[in-house]
Design a binder for these strands. Structure first.
Lengths: 144, 144
DNA sequence: TGATTTGTAACACCTGTGGTTACATAATAT
DNA sequence: ATATTATGTAACCACAGGTGTTACAAATCA
């Protein structure tokens, strides 16, 4: 995963919208829950609106609502909506192609990264916002 | 994965040491293959020496050699040697604990990250430096 | 009309990363 | 012994990305 907090904040935001059950929630209210500035919230929600996960309305009584039922939103969809393409540190990696190792290592590493990325995304695909919502409202685990 | 190139460069370095078949290789030679400064190479190799994957010797005719056979070095071992603990962007994520969502979302997200990290590391565990070395020296794939 | 809210540009600040110089330390060759 | 070659590390700079903040236009509703 990346070094930024976009994904974590986005899941938090969407969980908050699910928690508010369809109400139009202004960015200031979400910002208070996340503990950051409202502009940061609107920036991220802008990406989620583009991805059709969230609806928005301007003006008084406006705000943000989920555009899809929580069960229809996987964490992978959220991840893809707000995270740029993963670079795996290959951005500044420019080996010497004159060297037999440097000439081929890039492609080999790329193959490794494709596999690790796929494994990670497979995990994200299996978790839905509905499950997150459920965990939020779960009571303390009973012993018995 | 992180935004830095430590892991990619480290795999490149170790693949180069495997390529040189036990010779003591100076940091300047590795730097030429990776395409960076020798100090950057020594910094990373320092971590790999601490992890017992690489041996080092000072002085003329000195340099770096693999401390373990390539088949005994997994990419996961390399990853753990040079990458700091993954933060998944949780460093600056400090939700409002007064809010019922903010109070529990951290723990829930942590559970998700543990799973994605484990899935990724499982992939890295299955690839050895010997396999990378083999791919480096593979001839072009024959058709039929 | 006035209040509220989104949308976005613009900017400053902080942090992590990588490149570079410098130099002490160690080991070898002659 | 001494010159040479290498590692080990500190110190510093430059750059990029991420986050917080202000500002303001545009849209919507009472």
């Amino acid at each position: 995963m990346s070094a930024n907090s976009r994904f974590a904040v986005s899941v938090h935001m969407l969980a908050y919208l699910a928690h508010r059950q369809g109400a139009a929630v202004p960015s200031t209210e979400i910002a208070a829950s996340v503990g950051t500035n409202a502009v940061v919230i609107r920036r991220l929600l802008s990406a989620l609106v583009k991805a059709r996960l969230v609806s928005t309305q301007k003006g008084a009584t406006g705000g943000f609502t989920l555009a899809v039922f929580p069960a229809g939103i996987s964490l992978l969809a959220i991840y893809r909506a707000v995270e740029p393409a993963p670079e795996h540190g290959m951005r500044r990696f420019a080996p010497n192609h004159q060297c037999p190792v440097g000439a081929k290592i890039e492609a080999i590493l790329h193959g490794v990264f494709v596999k690790t990325q796929a494994a990670m995304e497979q995990e994200l695909l299996q978790v839905t916002l509905a499950q997150i919502h459920q965990q939020l409202h779960a009571v303390c685990p009973r012993k018995k």
